[in-house]
Structures are given as C-alpha cells and as structure tokens.
Design a protein around this nucleic acid. Structure first.
Lengths: 190, 190, 190, 190
DNA sequence: GGATAATCGAGACGGTACGTCCGGTCTTCCG
DNA sequence: CGGAAGACCGGACGTACCGTCTCGATTATCC
C-alpha cells in the first residue's frame, strides 16, 4: 500500500483541445440549426467531448453558446476619427453586422430562451462592450467640448442600442445605414 | 355513404367557458410561478381543460400565454392633450408599467423563450399597438405643424420603444420617468 | 306550453345504410392495417358515419369489428358424410382457413387486445359455433354407435379447437391438413 | 477531436437495482390493478425509475410485464416418475396453476393486448418451456418404448397445451384435474 | 299538417397513456 | 485526477384514441 500522498496541484491539466472543440462545435451548430435547437447533447456529440466535461466548465447551454460567439460579437475597436457622428455611425453599423451574423435565429434572441433568466445575463455581457464603446465616443465629445457638459451620454447610447436591437432582434427587420445616420443626427442635434 | 345530413359548419360549438378558463389559468400561473415554469400541463390541469383542447386552439405555450396577457398588455388609449411631449411621455410611462406587470420573469422576455421562434411573432403583436400609439401622437404633431414635415416619425417611435425595451427587458433595470422626459425632449429638440 | 304528449314508437328509424357502411369500413380497415390499428375514429371517417352513431349501436371497438367479421367467420354448415373423421377434418380445415382470413393480425388475436376483457367475450361468440359444429359431428357418431357412449365429446372438441388456435393464433404458424388428420385419428382411436 | 481516450465498453454500468425495482413494481401492479391498468408511467413512478430508463431497456409495456413474470411463469422442473401419464398430468396441472396466477386479467390474455403484435412474441416465449417440458416427457416414453416410435410427440404436446389455453385463456373457465386426466388418457390410448 | 321523437353528421371536449427529448448529475474505467 | 462513455432521474413535450357531449338538420310517426 503506497503512502497515499495527495499532492495538490497534481493531476491532469484541462485539455485546451477539448475546450476549443466545444466552442467550435457550438458555433457551427448555431449556424446550422439555430440557437434553440442547439443542445448540450449535440455539442458534446459533435465536439467529441463528454457532456460531463461541458458541465464542468460551463454552467449551462447559454454559457457555452455565448462563450462561443463572444469573441466574434465583441466590437473590435472604438473608432476615433474626430467626427463624433461618423464614429458613432461606424460603431452602430458594426453592431448591425454583428447582430445579423447568425441569420434569423440570432444569438441575441436565442440567448434569451435558455431555461430561467440565465440567458439574459450573458446577453448583457455581449451587449455591454458596445454600450461602452458608444459611451466612450460620446464622452470624448463632451470632453472636447463638441457636446455640452450636461449631454445625456448614457441615455443616448442606450437609445441607439435600443433602436438597433428593437428593429433587428424583435422585428427581425433589415436596417439600413441611412436610418442610423438620421438617428445619430437627431440625437446630436439637441 | 349513409343518408344523414353532411353539412359543413355543423358540430358542437367551441366552448367559450373553456377558452376563458384557459386564459385565466395561464395568467394566474404566470403571476405565481413565472413564465418559464408555466407549463401546458399545468394550464390544462388548473383550467380543467384537456391538454388536447389546448393544442387544438393554440400551437404552443407562448401562444397561450401571449393570448392570455394580450388584452392587459395593450395600450388603453392614445393620450391627446395637445402637448406632444406630454402625450409621448404618458404613453411611454404606460408602456413601462405594462412591461413590469408580471415581475422579473417578464412576459416579454418569456415570450421569446418558447420552443422555436414563435415567441417573437407574438411579441411583435404585443409591441405593435404601442408603436402605433406613438406614431399617432407624432403624426398628429406633424399634421398640426408642431413638427417639421420631414420629421422621422417611425424612427423616433422605434428609438423610444427600443430604449424602454433595452433597459427594461434586457438590462432588467428600473427606469425612472425623468429618463423618459430627457429622451423625449432630446428627440423633439431637432 | 303544449300538452307534452310522449308517444313512444315515433322518431326516425335507424339508417340501415349507415349500419352497413360501418361494418364494411371496419372489415376493410381490418384487412388494411390490422386489428390493433383499427380505431373507432378511422371507422367513422371511412364509413362517413359519426362517431356518436357508432357508440349508439356498438359498445366499443371489439364489438364493431367482431360484428363486422362474424358472418364471415361463422362455419357455413356442418358436414355430414357419414364418415366422422372426414367430417371433423373438413370442419377443422374450414376453421383453419377462416382464422387465416385476415393475415398476420388475425382478428382472433386482435379481439383480445381491446381495452378490458370485452374482446374475449366476442371471441367466445366467434369460436362457439365451431365448437358446436364439432360437438354435433361427435354427438352424431355417439348416437349411431360409431363412438362409445362415454366418449368425451366436449373435451375432444375443445382439444381440437385448442390445437388449431394454439398453433395459428399463438404461434402464428401455418398448419397443414396432414397435422389435422393425425390429430383427429389419434383422438378417435381410443 | 480532443485527446481523451475514446474506448468502447466505458461508461456507467446498468444499475441492477433499478432493473430489479422495475420488475418488482411491474409484478406488484399486475397483482393489484390487473394487466390492462398497468402503465409504463405507473411502473416508473412506483419503481422510482425514470420513464426514459424503462424505454431504454424494454420496448413497451408487454415486454416489461412479461419479463417481470417470466420466471414465475416458467415450469420449475419436468417430472419424471416413470409413469408417462402421471408426468404429463403433473406438468399440465402446474401449467394450469401458473396461468391463473394473476387472476382474471391473466398475463397471458393481457400480454396480447399491448399495442402492436409484440405481446404475442412474449407469449410464445412464456409458453415454449411448457411445450418443451411436455415434449421431453413424451420423448422419454418413446425412447423407452412405452410409446411407438412414430408417436406424434409435438402434435400431442400442442394439442394438450391448446386445450388448456383454449379453456383457461379464451373461455376463462376453471378446468378440473379430471378433465386433464381424460385428455391425457385419450391421447396415449392410441 | 304540426307537434313529438328519434337519428344522424360534425366535431369539440375531458381523460389517460403514449413514446420522445433534453437538462443536469452520477458512475465506471482508462490514460 | 481529467476526461470519454454512457446510464440515470426529472419533467415537459406533443400525439393518439377513447368515450361523452352538444349542435343543428333530417326523417319518421301519430294525433
């Protein structure tokens, strides 16, 4: 009988290959069958990873899928051309493209459908960077005096985001860049 | 083929009592356990209506629940005080109250979570009257010359709706009336 | 308020066309889909007769189907050639043919599958004439002194019937006439 | 495909406790409520086993119930006293007792009533050992010269079985031992 | 010939059970 | 000790028939 030493820190390390395979499978499935038909079982099967392993690293479906698309859904960079309207417009157009990445069954709509309210939290995580980007742009304008000091920065950013989400996610409409232009112009006219 | 009359339109009529009982049960359950714990089975049990009858008249849970709350979620009347800003504000505040009628597990969020994309369609149905109300208010202002003829009526209404939905449904935040006031003022300032 | 006279014997008479249509439909379905896939609903649809009318005249599925095939399953006549063995053999061969009328999903097997034990009763009704036929043949032989007075007539008839049923209904086997010949010979040898 | 081993034969083993619990529950229910009121749902509930697990191992109700009673319905041993008639009689009496083990709603009758024709197959399985037992007895007699070499062993066994089944299962009658005695005597007299 | 009955087709209804699907958890065995 | 395989419980799903129950229209019978 060996001395039964329990060396902490020992043991096999998390397999990065498995981790990557899961995210790839999740994203593929998302494209193929739409969010609400993605299942943990299918992800496990396709990725060759055991269901248990999924649950070891992610609490639920929403988490896996959101994780899978997070990178792709994050804004790459906040534009800074000096022209506030142009910057805001560029950012909103980027968001538009992002939201339509996965066709009808948008992840955004899908993320809400997970059991319980877990999906919403992930959704917040995805949308927050975009909000921050818009705030950055507007804050910069306030700082440089291009907008008055009492300009409702947060509210404006939220209205812009809301407009895009309402039309793309809820109404499932195609939104043109001209619409965004009018929106931004109106908000900054005050 | 035997003799007896073969008329279309014959047969027992739909039981209005059962119909009502279902909607009542659905709404009660919504209040008690939250959308995602409402079940076709529970609705059937509570209403004393057979599950098959549910499926005869509604394709899925989302349809039943949305149907159950549709009346309660519709705007009662479009305010008309002559003051556009005040009217718009009143309408938006009413929407705010409506969206928070069923607590955390908002129907709006919940309606999206049903299997398939059916939920979104119902959601559109619920939100559309509100959109129309806002459009009516703005159109009136354009007609009376209080707003320029080229005012982006639809876009503005959608941005307002979007703002409210983004904050209430997505961020699950409590929105104050002052926020709405600023929002409306900014949009009408142009 | 009229004098509310209740004349019995009045009222529309039972539609013989409907009655016939039901039995026809039932038998057709039996042939096409097999007993256990015959449903009251399907019979009603095919015959153009309302389900209610079915239940007005027959208590359940087993009753309809058994009624539909009763005529066809009854022995036509008890043979009487003077040769007991030949008569018995002829009768058993006729039974054999009858039992295999509806292929794999024999009515006999099927009749048992109705909810509850109702099917068995109908089954007894169908088989009883065959039993009586065999008894008639054997009784005749006893009367004419070809068989001893203490010959177990009933038991023998039941064993013959049992043999055929066991092999055809239970084992689903094809039974040859030679088997029956041996069976009859053995029983009468005593 | 991640690194972890992909071996066949891995995975959790079938829970023998659950297996046993199911069969026990099935048999208890059979005794309590009769075959046609036994339900997969009830079996699952009583045994504490998930319905899915039932369907993983048995295709339908008939399979579960038949499996549950198979042991109890099998002949314990083939008697061998040297007296063929006595042996056969003993075996047939044992069968008689077995068939009436579960009262009116005999499993034998019940097994046939399951959806589809699956029940018959199970029934064959149950009856076959009895057939074999009778064949063994008769074969022994042929081997020792107590019966002629050309004695129709199979046919006789089938007629005996058929007689018992016809009267017990079909006619639902109580069969006396004296009947069996006469039956056996008649068959062996040739 | 007009009230009184009974019958019929249509089809909604309350029930009961079905067999399937997925979410998460737990267990076994290998590397 | 991580991870694949896969059995397991729980719970909801949507479907299928059963047998009952209105409807409204359609015959008969009898006063």
């Amino acid at each position: 009988m060996p001395a039964g030493g329990a060396r902490p820190g020992a043991g096999r390390k998390r397999d990065p290959e498995a981790h990557r395979a899961v995210l790839t499978a999740a994203e593929e499935l998302l494209n193929e069958v739409g969010y609400h038909r993605v299942t943990m079982e299918r992800i496990a099967e396709r990725s060759g990873v055991a269901k248990m392993t999924l649950y070891r690293w992610w609490p639920n479906k929403a988490a896996v899928v959101t994780d899978a698309v997070r990178t792709r859904l994050a804004p790459t960079a906040v534009p800074d051309t000096g022209d506030i309207a142009a910057d805001a417009l560029a950012q909103l157009e980027a968001l538009l493209q992002t939201l339509t990445l996965y066709g009808d069954a948008s992840v955004v709509a899908g993320a809400m459908s997970s059991r319980g309210e877990a999906g919403l939290a992930d959704l917040r995580d995805i949308l927050h960077p975009w909000f921050e980007g818009l705030v950055t742009i507007l804050d910069r304008a306030v700082a440089t005096g291009k907008l008055p000091p009492d300009f409702p920065v947060h509210l404006t950013a939220q209205a812009w985001l809301g407009y895009v989400i309402y039309r793309v996610v809820f109404l499932q409409e195609v939104v043109g860049a001209d619409n965004l232009r009018v929106l931004v112009k109106q908000s900054l006219a005050a």
